[in-house]
């Protein structure tokens, strides 16, 4: 089963012919070549594939592509502004050591965006809960939490 789906992707109206068993992640990476969104586990455990759908963070590896019809999707690429300027959250991760191997980073940053959009001044516990769906094996999270704290100061 195939269908033409239309949605907003990083602010642009897009459409794509998609098979019914495809997940949003596959459409983003394979159809739109937005490879910033990573597949870490494919089962909603690691959060590397986190994107925003209508502003809410979701694991795109478990999000049926058909469900995105009419919705607005933001990926990590959508945060970078004109002239390759990083979003304040991205900047904070760069400045404060929130990045090591970087594989979890796009998902981590998208979860942070969802968190700060809803709660611009989170406590450390709220930060940790906010990124609890994103696994990182390199940093031990300490500098990630610090990055988010700093990002919140500018939010």
């Amino acid at each position: 089963m195939k269908k033409l789906i239309r949605f907003t992707l990083n602010g642009h109206e897009v459409s794509a012919e998609v098979e019914s068993h495809r997940m949003l992640l596959e459409v983003l990476r394979n159809t739109f070549h937005l490879t910033g969104t990573k597949e870490g586990c494919g089962q909603g455990e690691c959060g590397a594939c986190t994107v925003l759908v209508d502003g809410l963070s979701v694991d795109s590896c478990l999000y049926p592509a058909f469900e995105v019809e009419g919705k607005s999707v933001t990926t990590i690429e959508g945060l970078v502004e004109e002239g390759s300027r990083l979003h304040p959250i991205q900047e904070a991760f760069v400045e404060h050591g929130g990045i090591q191997c970087g594989f979890c980073t796009p998902g981590m940053i998208m979860s942070t965006k969802a968190l700060l959009d809803e709660n611009p001044h989170p406590t450390d516990d709220e930060i940790k809960r906010g990124i609890s769906g994103n696994l990182c094996r390199c940093t031990g999270y300490v500098q990630i939490v610090e990055s988010i704290r700093k990002a919140a100061e500018k939010y």
């Binding site: 979701v58 694991d59 478990l62 979860s111 968190l115 769906g133 994103n134």
Partner: peptide, 9 residues
Amino acid sequence: LANPQVRNV
């Protein structure tokens, strides 16, 4: 229950 991304759907 699970994590924010899961609770969002």
